[in-house]
Design a protein around this nucleic acid. Structure first.
Lengths: 100, 100
DNA sequence: ACCATAGGCAAGTGTTCACTTGCCTATCAA
DNA sequence: TTGATAGGCAAGTGAACACTTGCCTATGGT
């Protein structure tokens, strides 16, 4: 059972608390721009994150396939994609179901 | 939506490839000792990990609640517990289901 | 043309984290 | 008791990673 490189990226992406908060933010409101995400992180999560920091986190999330983006003029909208999460925990499901 | 400290530990525990392989190993054969895990990692995954390294990984997995252990004389058996994985991905499930 | 906004790129910094190293305790067999 | 096995503890090292800093491009409004 060797894992795919994509799975590696997903686990790495989920490891950081700020990135998980970004996913929370996109879950609540999909298609936000970089500035929107920064502002809402600061307000709702009392979490001060710089623009560059959030931008790099979005790159990491994109590498994991968890976030896609679409350019429109000056604006770049970010969208959540939860499909990489589906197979994630299936991996450690026992062959025989273990009950306490 | 603030995450629990236990969830933080679970995400951190899953971030490391060696720890995921240990979970793979315990999925295939539950209740292994430290030395068994080391030996099987080396054989099956061509992954050379020292005893101390694996021991520290088991501590991290235990802190996440993913592994429990039971002492019996000289031996300490390690058991997989997948319950912390259940709620993990539910968090980012959209209110409206997004397709493609 | 100008300026402000939205975002990108890349080098540098500091912290976290995995792994090693060395020594220690505990159990079991002879 | 002696030796071997199974595991633990803690300080030190090196690399990965999050974040900053400084400067750049591009779009839109006036």
């Amino acid at each position: 059972m060797t894992e795919s490189p994509e799975d590696e990226n997903v686990f790495r992406a989920l490891a950081d608390p700020t990135r998980r908060k970004i996913l929370d933010e996109l879950t609540e409101r999909d298609g936000q721009t970089l500035f929107e995400i920064c502002a809402r992180l600061a307000m709702k999560h009392q979490h001060t994150a710089s623009r560059q920091s959030v931008s790099q986190h979005l790159d990491t999330l994109a590498a994991a396939g968890l976030v896609t983006s679409r350019r429109d003029g000056r604006y770049k909208f970010h969208y959540l994609d939860t499909t990489p999460l589906r197979r994630l925990t299936e991996r450690w499901r026992r062959p025989e179901t273990k009950e306490t």
